[in-house]
């Protein structure tokens, strides 16, 4: 052991401590990145929407149904109604199926069937939505236009709110299923055993015990699905028909908030006020998603207290 190796190990320790300090700064920066990014997005969108907000009253824009950027008419009502319509229809169609399928995978399926079905559904959650839109153009659109709409006494080309909702239900169910299955499978087996032990049937166990115990998880799965549908862009843009008017029936064409941005993007660069209006749509989207996330968090905590086991 000479002095040289001693100073060598000193050096090494110094280097390690330096790495530790430098990486500490980097990691800290990365740790704050999510907050900074969120603040930047909100501020940038807010700043760019100011020209519009200073010119027109918010209430008037949200309740006016006259959308004509060329004439400086910015009524967001048709797009808002379209978005609500699509989201509500999708959730009505998708949620029961998603929850039932999740129950099947978590409680009924066994062995290879279970692995097969659940990995299949995981794969599907990753398929790009543009592919769903494309397949819908040759499968769902003719079906709705030729059979379903005439059957309920409505004439339509097949492009419209109902078609979008149907396809969006297909897009989000795998996503909701895999999250719900996760929270059902996280439940301890004692819950099932004790419920069956006091004489409940399997379905009663699921309905009374498991769905409540996993309730907060399933609830947030549904809300995440809601957020997905609410902000979906590509599928509505391909299938909704892109006409800005108040939809008169579920089979009518329409517009959602994201498709408004996509369809009027061409005019965006030239007219500053239109640009500001479309950026304001982005702001509305993020504010609604934020409000939903926040209230979901609170509700989830309350449900957890109420249905704790």
């Amino acid at each position: 052991m000479g002095g040289s190796t001693d100073s060598g190990s000193q050096n090494r320790l110094g280097r390690r401590l330096l790495t530790e300090r430098v990486s500490g700064y980097w990691l800290q920066g990365a740790g704050y990145f999510a907050i900074v990014l969120f603040a930047l997005i909100v501020l940038a969108l807010l700043y760019q929407s100011l020209p519009l907000l200073s010119e027109y009253s918010l209430v008037q824009m949200l309740t006016s149904s006259n959308w004509d950027p060329a004439q400086n008419q910015f009524g967001f009502l048709p797009a808002i109604v379209g978005t609500v319509y699509v989201t509500a229809l999708t959730m009505i169609m998708g949620t029961p199926i998603a929850i039932l399928a999740a129950i099947y995978i978590a409680e009924y399926a066994e062995g290879r069937t279970k692995t097969l079905v659940s990995s299949f559904i995981d794969v599907l959650a990753a398929i790009p939505s543009v592919i769903f839109g494309l397949v819908a153009l040759i499968v769902v659109v003719p079906f709705v236009g030729d059979y379903l709409a005439p059957a309920v006494g409505s004439s339509a080309t097949g492009l419209g709110i109902f078609t979008v909702s149907l396809v969006m239900a297909i897009v989000v169910t795998p996503f909701m299923i895999s999250l719900s299955v996760e929270s059902l499978e996280a439940l301890p087996d004692e819950l099932r055993e004790s419920s069956l032990g006091v004489g409940a049937t399997k379905w009663e166990t699921i309905r009374i015990v498991l769905l409540r115990a996993a309730g907060p998880g399933i609830f947030s799965a549904v809300l995440l699905g809601f957020g997905r549908v609410f902000g979906a862009t590509i599928v509505p843009a391909m299938l909704i028909g892109g006409q800005t008017h108040l939809p008169s029936s579920p089979f009518a064409t329409g517009q959602t908030l994201p498709t408004l941005i996509v369809n009027d993007f061409g005019e965006l660069m030239s007219l500053p006020l239109t640009q500001s209006a479309l950026i304001f749509v982005g702001l509305m989207l993020i504010v609604v998603v934020w409000l939903f996330n926040f209230s979901a968090m609170i509700l989830r905590q309350r449900l957890q207290q109420r249905w704790q086991f």
């Binding site: 997005i41 969108l45 902000g231 862009t233 996509v262 998603v289 939903f292």
Partner: peptide, 27 residues
């Protein structure tokens, strides 16, 4: 706290990111 923000970002529609980057481009 960070996880809360990450959840919000996770639920943010992709088109909002597109519009955000676009505002940066314009700016």
């Amino acid at each position: 706290t960070v996880n809360m923000f990450l959840n919000v970002l996770w639920g943010t529609p992709p088109i909002v990111y597109g519009v955000f980057v676009l505002t940066v481009i314009i700016a």
